[in-house]
Each structure stands twice: as C-alpha cells, then as structure tokens.
Amino acid sequence: MSKPMKSALVLLGPLLAFLMLAYVFPFLGILRWSFTLPELGLGNYADALTDPLVLSVFGRTLRVCVIVTLVSVASAYVITLLWVRGGPVQRLVMELCILIPFWISVLTRAFGWLALLSNRGLINTWLQGIGLTSDPLTMVRNEFGVVVGMAHFLIPFAVFPLASAVRNLDERVLLAARGMGAGRQRVFWTVFLPMTAPGILGAALIVFVFALGFFVTPAILGGGRSVMVAELVYLRIFQSPNWGLGAAISVILMIGVAFLMGALMKAVRPGEKS
C-alpha cells in the first residue's frame, strides 16, 4: 500500500468506524429482520410486493417524488439564474432567500406551511376575504400540501449543483452563439440549457433520493392521508408491530435508491464515447 493511501486511511478511519457503527451494523440488523421475523423466509417480501396498501404507498411515493423533483429543479433553475447571473444587490437578496430556510428546522417549516395552507389558514382566509372563493380550498392533508412542503425544503439542495454548473459555463460560448446571430431564446434552449444538463441531472438525483426518505413533512402536511414510504415503515415498526414487513419495505426502498443512483450517475458522466 502506498504512503498517501495509508495516511488517507488513518484520516478516514474515524469516519469509516462511525459509519460502520451507526449505519452498516443497524442496516445489517434490518436486513436480518426482513428475512427472519416472524419466521425465516421471503414471506415479508412477498407480502410487501403483493399487499395493495404497500403497493399504493410505493406508487404514491414515486409519484410525489417525481412531481417534487420536477417542481424543485425547475424552481431552483430559475432561482439559480437570478442568483448567479444577477447584479450585486439581486445576488445578495437571492443568497439570503436561499440560505434563510436552511436555518429553520423542518418541523417549523412544515407547521409554517400548515398555518398558510390549512382550511382556516392565511391563504384561504385571504381568498375568501376578497371574495375569490366561497369555500376553502383544500391544500393540506393531501398530496398538494406534501409537494409544496417538500419542494420548499428541497429547492436549496438543487440550487447548489445547478449554481456550480451555471458558474462553470464558459461565457465565451454564449457570446459565440450570440455573435453568430442567435437570439436570447435560442441561445438559452440550444446552448445554455444543454450545457447545464449535467447539473440538472445531478440536482434531480439529489432531490429525488432525498425526497424518497422524507418523513416529517409528509406526516404533517399529508395529515395521515397521503402516507409515504418512510411513514409507512414507521407505522409498521411502531404502531402495528410488524417489524419484518417494515424491514422488508426499508430494504426495497434502499435497493431502489441504490439502483437509481447508479443509473443517474451514469447519465451524468456519459463516459468518453463521442
């Protein structure tokens, strides 16, 4: 083993040990439960993949996460452009808008959205006050509320990979396109957007994987009606004790995430084929 490799291992050692203790061992335990509780076999996986309730939760999770990813990445793209390519004042304002949500806990933010979106919340009161609607719009305890809350949380995580993609863009390439007579729209769609595509994919990957494991926001804004996978696992383990099934669902989620990561990593780095 080379010398730098050795010193790298020494430096990484504590982190690796921590990850082993805090993640790998517990995960192995979960893996064991999924095959052994209540009895040895693949029964839990068979249940998880046939139980209509579990399947509908998987379906909803996938749907919500896809929508959240689209909403978050699209909003983050606009925010990034305003942030990175704006004047100094605009940049400062955007920076604050991106960073401030980071300082507020997930829980507080979820309750904040509840206060805004619920039937007697600020938005409905205002809409009824100016006479636009007579009955309150249902914006929480459904997927709409979940999407809003999750996207709000995840947008900053999409902004950073996008910002680095936009910053690394060679300005001269854009000038070149304009110089050849291409208007702003054309430059954006045929040059700017394709050139930042790896950043978009990276942002989508982060947001999607993050969204799959969301627990607090869907629990509060979904109000028990839009149950997502993480909440289902929680219910199976803590409320209707069925540890084996909960463990099996976790493992399926984990495998799905690993598969997605692999596929998207390949898409982001398309190799040297030309």
């Binding site: 060679d170 001269r172 070149a176 110089g179 595509a197």
Partner: peptide
C-alpha cells in the same frame, strides 16, 4: 451583436461541447 452577425473566433475556441 446578433444583428451584426460578425464571425468570431475566441481564445479557447468557445465550441459547443454538447454538439459534434
């Protein structure tokens, strides 16, 4: 610049990396 439409060759070429 778009309307002038002068050809331009930049330092570092400024080719579109995603195009052949």
């Amino acid at each position: 610049a778009e309307t002038r439409g002068f050809g331009m060759v930049f330092q570092g070429y400024a080719l579109f990396p995603h195009m052949t």
